[in-house]
Write a protein that binds this DNA or RNA. Sequence first.
DNA 1: AGGCGCTTGTGCACCATTTCACATGGTATC
DNA 2: GATACCATGTGAAATGGTGCACAAGCGCCT
Lengths: 226, 226
Amino acid sequence: MDDAVGPRHDEPIPDATVARLPVYLRGLVELSDDGVATVSSVVLASLAGVNAANVRKDLSYLHAHGTRGVGYDVDHLIGEISLALGGGVPSPVVIIGVGNLGRALSRYDGFLAGGFPVAGLVDVDPAVVGRKVAGNLVRSVEDLDDLVVETGCTIGIVATPAAAAQAAVDSLVASGVTSILNFAPTVVTVPDRVDLRQVDLATELQILGYHQHYRAVEERSDRATG
Amino acid sequence: MDDAVGPRHDEPIPDATVARLPVYLRGLVELSDDGVATVSSVVLASLAGVNAANVRKDLSYLHAHGTRGVGYDVDHLIGEISLALGGGVPSPVVIIGVGNLGRALSRYDGFLAGGFPVAGLVDVDPAVVGRKVAGNLVRSVEDLDDLVVETGCTIGIVATPAAAAQAAVDSLVASGVTSILNFAPTVVTVPDRVDLRQVDLATELQILGYHQHYRAVEERSDRATG
DNA sequence: AGGCGCTTGTGCACCATTTCACATGGTATC
DNA sequence: GATACCATGTGAAATGGTGCACAAGCGCCT
């Protein structure tokens, strides 16, 4: 554990930690903008809405060590987290499906700010191919391979209707994309080597609906049983 | 477990299960549309992309029991899951923030189909207040209370810029909304009685970025060490 | 130089969730 | 009616994550 055995193959960071790193990063950037130089785990925890011990454990997976009695160096931490989350190199993304959601996503500033510029838009509908959306020309799915190669983009965002999602994913995979963010409300499958995340808007509401319903049922029951 | 002890106060369903129920529901509706009457846990699991034992355990939390040797009744299961996820009653939602994302969300069919009709749109910008978006009049934040009361909606969707998100959340809470879905890329706080979910688009990409980077680093390391 | 106060880093126990494996109990067939 | 087959429902182990509590370490102040 402490011997120098050559190039150290960083161990993987737990998924739960990875999911929190972007939240820490946002808080840290804000602190840095405000001229704050160091931050304690307690402060960072409150900014991120998590437990302080959790923050410390999360940061211990990075090679970013803090200083006891002082805290963590804000700028250094920003560097370390950025490095872990993609090496600090911007990764262009391609959006497939230029409907309501696709258009909104292509205009979303947060992607660019987060280091994910939109490299191109793609759709199957001839009516939108050739148009410009948010400064990007919409290209045909046949051009996807070229687009991916030209721009070197490795991340695809699927914003098609559910019925077209699997085909869109297959096209992306065939083009060499290795990470996919799927907004279509359907389960899609990818080869093992491809990383897939699902964002399902309707599902999120249904989850809220459950809790709301449960609260209501419980309340009724409380009133009945006293 | 079998004695009649009066009005049974259903026990809460684990969060992880609740998050999967909508996925099961989608698969089941598809099966029902195809005229399939019963489904086994194995088939449903493959439709939802999870383990079969997990499906069975999840369904055991509902009062939907299957038939050994046969499987689950598709339509009955649809009813039970719908009931758990909000009682089968449509819950109108209000969207606050009518920018790119807010407009896309207000046009998103999946909400209506999932039982979450858009009851109204709200924004602080006088330039958009009074306009119609997707058939809905955009109203001022000052009208939020009235809107919530009139439509009886209990779910709010925050689609404002990050800087305005906490204020938007506070307004929603003050109006009596008890469930909030926040798309703004910032941590917001709510009282205990309010349920909050966060959907962060840039964060999702950053998580993908981590895995991609990690794969790349590991590969380089593999090549180096043989 | 020494002591004090503050904050990190982490062992450990707890909790939630997943998965396996199998007993249980139905259905269909002969 | 008995038997073979099949899928459910669940105990129990394994896994992954969280949070407490405290030892260790660092800087500041005297």
